[in-house]
Simulated assay, not measured.
Amino acid sequence: MKKQRGVALSGLLFWSIVLVLVAVLGMKVAPTYIEYAKTLKDTKAVVAQVAPDASVTDVRKAFDKYAEIDHLAMPSSQLEIFKDGGKIVIEFAYEKRIPLFANVSLLIDYKGTTAGN
């Protein structure tokens, strides 16, 4: 006689619950990561756009324009702007708390800089 192959109902339910939980977690984390990626892209675009002798106020105004277009919640006052070797460098760091269920939440620290690559 041949052995039966397949998935038991209990196994199917277990893996479908695991898959749904991972999908829900991904749907909650993805928007925060997209916002971080937009912020990093906008800071790099600002550094490329402004002149090397631009003031901190000019850099903040340029970032505010990009942030308005991309609907970013991060104000330019949270940016650290300084010069390193004659080049403007922008750094930022913030944390996002994502509520999962009941009193359990996920805390993600985002950090970005325009220095280097």
Results as ranks from 00 to 15, higher is better:
63 F>H: 03
96 K>W: 02
23 A>P: 05
33 Y>V: 00
22 V>M: 11
58 D>T: 13
9 L>A: 13
72 L>Y: 00
55 S>W: 07
108 I>Q: 02
1 M>Y: 15
36 Y>P: 00
113 T>V: 03
82 F>M: 15
115 A>V: 04
11 G>Y: 12
43 T>D: 03
111 K>V: 06
62 A>E: 15
96 K>S: 06
25 L>P: 08
67 A>N: 05
57 T>D: 14
67 A>G: 08
32 T>K: 00
109 D>Y: 07
99 P>K: 05
57 T>Y: 13
42 D>M: 04
9 L>M: 14
97 R>T: 09
91 E>Q: 08
98 I>N: 03
75 P>D: 13
86 G>N: 08
17 I>D: 13
82 F>R: 10
95 E>Q: 06
46 V>G: 02
36 Y>H: 04
60 R>Y: 05
24 V>D: 06
84 D>Y: 11
76 S>A: 14
12 L>M: 13
55 S>C: 09
24 V>H: 09
84 D>R: 14
18 V>W: 11
111 K>A: 10
45 A>Y: 04
92 F>Y: 08
49 Q>E: 14
53 D>G: 05
108 I>R: 02
81 I>V: 12
100 L>T: 07
47 V>I: 08
69 I>D: 12
4 Q>M: 15
116 G>F: 02
47 V>G: 01
93 A>Q: 12
61 K>L: 12
48 A>E: 10
4 Q>S: 12
97 R>S: 11
23 A>Q: 08
48 A>D: 08
11 G>N: 12
110 Y>M: 05
113 T>F: 03
98 I>S: 02
11 G>Q: 14
88 I>A: 04
6 G>R: 04
62 A>H: 10
19 L>E: 15
67 A>Y: 03
34 I>M: 00
100 L>A: 09
104 V>G: 07
38 K>F: 01
72 L>Q: 00
80 E>A: 14
105 S>D: 15
114 T>G: 07
85 G>H: 06
40 L>P: 02
84 D>S: 15
85 G>M: 06
82 F>Y: 14
60 R>I: 06
3 K>M: 09
39 T>N: 00
105 S>K: 11
74 M>V: 06
42 D>R: 01
70 D>F: 01
35 E>G: 00
54 A>L: 05
43 T>P: 03
95 E>I: 00
72 L>A: 02
39 T>L: 00
46 V>P: 01
33 Y>Q: 01
36 Y>D: 01
12 L>H: 09
101 F>I: 10
64 D>M: 11
7 V>H: 10
75 P>W: 07
82 F>E: 15
49 Q>L: 12
110 Y>A: 03
30 A>V: 02
33 Y>T: 00
19 L>A: 14
19 L>I: 15
91 E>W: 01
14 F>C: 15
28 K>H: 07
62 A>F: 12
66 Y>I: 04
21 L>R: 04
28 K>Q: 08
54 A>T: 05
83 K>M: 03
27 M>Y: 09
99 P>Q: 06
61 K>Y: 07
95 E>K: 01
26 G>Y: 01
70 D>H: 04
8 A>P: 11
17 I>V: 15
82 F>K: 13
6 G>T: 04
50 V>H: 02
9 L>E: 13
1 M>K: 13
27 M>A: 11
55 S>Q: 12
56 V>C: 11
85 G>C: 07
34 I>F: 00
10 S>K: 13
